[in-house]
Design a protein around this nucleic acid. Structure first.
Lengths: 187, 187, 187, 187
DNA sequence: AATGAATGAGAGTTCATTCAT
DNA sequence: GATGAATGAACTCTCATTCAT
């Protein structure tokens, strides 16, 4: 692993352990196994570092979700594949899920990426729009369909992270997927 | 309004405008119209202040939600009343919603209140449990039923806050409530 | 003496002992008998502090020199009084003389005061111009007359500071004044 | 041009553009078209580099001034030749003039070269002493004669550098020389 | 109860210097 | 000879907290 990746990885770990508020460059350098000055060879500032990490996480997440999408395939199959990818990715990288949530709710930490805050919803928005055009989903506002698809997943992830549920069990995950599907699909 | 309330109100406003990360006591004092020293007459530390504000917000929220609950009344009616109260409270106090979300995802800002982070879900957990005992909800894990009830509301609130939807319209709100209800109730 | 003046005084002393290059805020706070943070209650940045000190020194110098000026009085008398004031002020405050010279030759330390760098010559420029109009000085370019009036004083101050001459002796000072006068006046 | 000279040249340029205070090795390497490490092959430290540059500049300046000196020749002719050489050198290398002035007023940047700070005055001191012995200059203290000879030149150079006068014009230069001569010579 | 000047530890950042390549 | 990534001490500046008034 190269130095830049080591820094990003250490940042992700520390932000999740201590939060944005308590992240400091000295501790970060120690966690990454480098010296403070080295961080600044790769990132111009703490803010830039956080923002770049966020962009990377969103980019990776969206790429993984979109791997579940196939042009022309039935909406149902696309929905399940994409959502399953999302859940799997979150379960395997709960720190990424937490980071996204922290980031989203830290106003003005990320002035420059304000507009990207909703990028996380783009893939789901895309298929909901397509399905809506073809009358394959309930006759509800798009935003509501998105909230019904993605909201319960976020909710379950929160419970998973605090140990209230075990999403790693296949059954739990499939029940979640099926329930989200029922919420938006025409019965 | 007394001084203590003025401080709490100013804190809520500034945290939502600038985030925990950029909140500072001098600015806070200015916002509250008092001097920095005065804050310390009412709160022992910045952390204590934040924690107390959080507890107040959760306490108020739960009290309002529980006003929609009546012992012995049909589950459906309790569900709608409580959830409607929750949504109304959030819509009228979006800063409180944002604060809760920020707080929840700032690990170790609130060491002492870690266990209270899920308190927000207590009222809904309560009626889901009762309904489950009486087989009035789908045969799904409790946690999933909670995620299905509350997750879409959080999702819609996020979209509302960034201006993507207008939850203030009665129709939008009722559609959301109905959809959440459909997710958990036996058809 | 108030805090702000103590900071300015300490700055002047340290800049002259160690130079701009080695001035640091920790040492400065110690010299002024206060803490680092206190400096920032009075000056927004190190640069602002240096600039303000410079402006004060120039302002004071010019005020003192101009005390030797009287409207309508013979050029010769004005010249001697003003120049004597300048020399006396420098002799009694050699640190101010050194500071001005350091400042003048530190490009870009003082972006904002660039245009004030020549303010030090304003009083002398003023009387040279007047004298020129009335043909009381040699027929030479203004700039040369200024250089002839002020240059030897700067030169002697440099020698005084390194201990090569004793300008405090009345004779030395009067010889310097007389020589400058001879340089510019019509014989 | 070899590497060492390239470094010295780059240093001179950057010190004059940004000042000692803002000179840094990375920028210096870029300006010289080499890498930071290479600087340290030729100079042990930043301080040593600055000091060596200073010594070179003084050495060159004195050599050029002394070219105007001829044993046994009339004082007046030596004075004019030497001073003309000095002025010409400064006019053609204003950066060297500025560097000398910056250096002179940066105490303790050059601990080791403190004693050399007046070396710049050696050639003029030399001929003034000779002339004094032979009663060819006014009966004034040596230091004052030096200040009268050299002070106005420094003064005019400062005005030249900020664009207030055009020393490149032959007339200006000759008037300056003549005026300095008048200041020290027996009428 | 209220103030706000003062504190100083600690933050983010810089940069002269080193050394493996 | 030449490189430039890496270092970490030291820098400027911030800000939660204190306390004399």
């Amino acid at each position: 692993m190269n130095t830049k990746e080591a820094i990003l990885k250490a940042t992700l770990r520390l932000v999740n352990e201590y939060g944005f508020y308590h992240l400091n460059m000295k501790q970060l350098a120690a966690e990454a196994g480098i010296s403070v000055g080295t961080i600044y060879l790769y990132f111009n500032s703490k803010e830039k570092l956080i923002n770049e990490l966020y962009k990377n996480i969103i980019r990776d997440f969206n790429a993984i979700v979109l791997k579940g999408y196939e042009e022309g395939r039935a909406f149902k199959q696309n929905f399940f594949e994409m959502m399953r990818n999302a859940i799997d990715h979150y379960i395997q990288n709960p720190d990424r899920f937490s980071f996204i949530e922290q980031y989203t709710y830290s106003p003005f930490l990320f002035k420059e990426t304000k507009e990207e805050n909703l990028a996380i919803l783009e893939p789901i928005e895309k298929i909901i729009k397509e399905a809506k055009k073809e009358n394959q989903v309930k006759d509800l506002p798009e935003t509501l369909l998105i909230a019904l698809s993605y909201g319960p997943i976020v909710g379950m992830m929160k419970l998973f992270i605090v140990g209230k549920t075990d999403l790693k069990k296949k059954m739990q995950k499939e029940l979640l997927l099926e329930a989200c599907w029922q919420s938006v699909s025409i019965q």
